[in-house]
Design a binder for these strands. Structure first.
Lengths: 199, 199
DNA sequence: CGTCTATTTGAATGTACTCAAAAGCGGTGG
DNA sequence: CCACCGCTTTTGAGTACATTCAAATAGACG
């Protein structure tokens, strides 16, 4: 590990240790199985229809995961910013072709791991099972909450909630991407913004 | 374990062993930490605003998880039938008040476990970490797929997809519950059914 | 058989969409 | 540094999809 990469791994270690405490040896083992990857703005981490070979921890930057439908419309499933993960779990775990793309919307630094190495990691450091269990549980909770919100809130309410829930994301992405995430058109979102927020 | 409960636990064991192989001793340990629970039709496993104290494996019957919004409208997040799970993970793990209810829509037999016992289980049988990791991953994949579907398909397409994806659920629940799950009104679903399914 | 709830049907309304065009904003090259 | 080009956001008008309200019909259950 070179000196230049220290900050990268320091963030990653803190991320892991929020869930599982690690010895220096364990962390060295873990980080040896991850690979640093850089993406420029507009580069793809994954293209819809390809196999997702990596799960990626985001060190810095921002990516969007989106499905392109039969009519060519994009629908954003997720934004991934620093200290979170990006990937298509279904494709990654089941070796199926991915049903969405993941694209950098800012320059991105990632720590990636493939399935083979992840399985090695589970074998060598069993408590890493717990790490991904907790990570999956958290993602599941957030995703379930989003379904409830989509079912029970109006478009305006979903927009206001997005702004308060993810202010750090909302501040750095174009409106049309927020619209896509919320399931509305950018034109309609623009109209919603004209109206003042109700209490 | 009484003879009468054998079929109950046999199904549960097969469920676990699809993910983690178990010795008889291990399975005895696991099942000793679960409690059988019966619910009549329309009984609640969890009421919105209460704490979710149990995660429950469904041995038989069917339940619906639904959020009731400010206007008193219900929105179904999930159906749980035999060989699947029911519970509010967020409330269960984080000890927060639940934002949805879980109600039996048929007589139900469950195997329930509370947080304390689950933690004991993780400690005594570490590979149970893997079981819940895989379970969470599968649930996350399904939930993410549902978000993509909700964003990119029309109401009619979502309905047709529901019928083909969950024929065993669709066959036994009232239409209004399917409408609630799909995020449309029962009146509108009824109109959709009039139109023949397009190819 | 009667009661309660679910489903269907029709009509009027509202929410969100498409289409079209103008205005704003950011990046790039001369 | 400014001018231009392309993309994003806004605005307005007309339309389509999904809703509410109301009432009739059909099914389920005691």
């Amino acid at each position: 590990m070179t000196t230049a990469l220290q900050p990268t791994y320091a963030l990653f270690r803190r991320h892991l240790e929020r869930i599982i405490p690690l010895t220096d040896d364990e962390f060295a083992c873990i980080s040896s199985l991850f690979t640093v990857k850089n993406l420029k703005k507009r580069q793809f981490l994954l293209q819809q229809g390809d196999m997702c070979k990596y799960e990626s921890y985001v060190v810095s930057g921002c990516l969007k995961s989106y499905h392109t439908d039969r009519e060519g419309q994009d629908h954003i499933l997720q934004f991934s910013i620093e200290d979170w993960w990006a990937g298509d779990l279904k494709s990654f775990l089941r070796k199926e072709l991915s049903s969405f793309s993941i694209e950098a919307i800012e320059p991105v630094v990632l720590l990636t791991i493939d399935k083979q190495r992840l399985d090695r990691l589970y074998a060598e450091i069993p408590k890493f099972e717990k790490f991904f269990r907790v990570l999956s549980e958290n993602a599941l909770i957030a995703t379930s909450q989003r379904i409830i919100n989509n079912l029970s809130l109006s478009a305006k309410e979903r927009y206001d909630l997005f702004l308060t829930t993810y202010p750090r994301i909302a501040a750095r992405i174009p409106l049309k991407d927020i619209a896509s995430y919320l399931g509305i058109t950018p034109v309609f979102l623009s109209q919603l913004r004209r109206e003042p927020t109700q209490v």
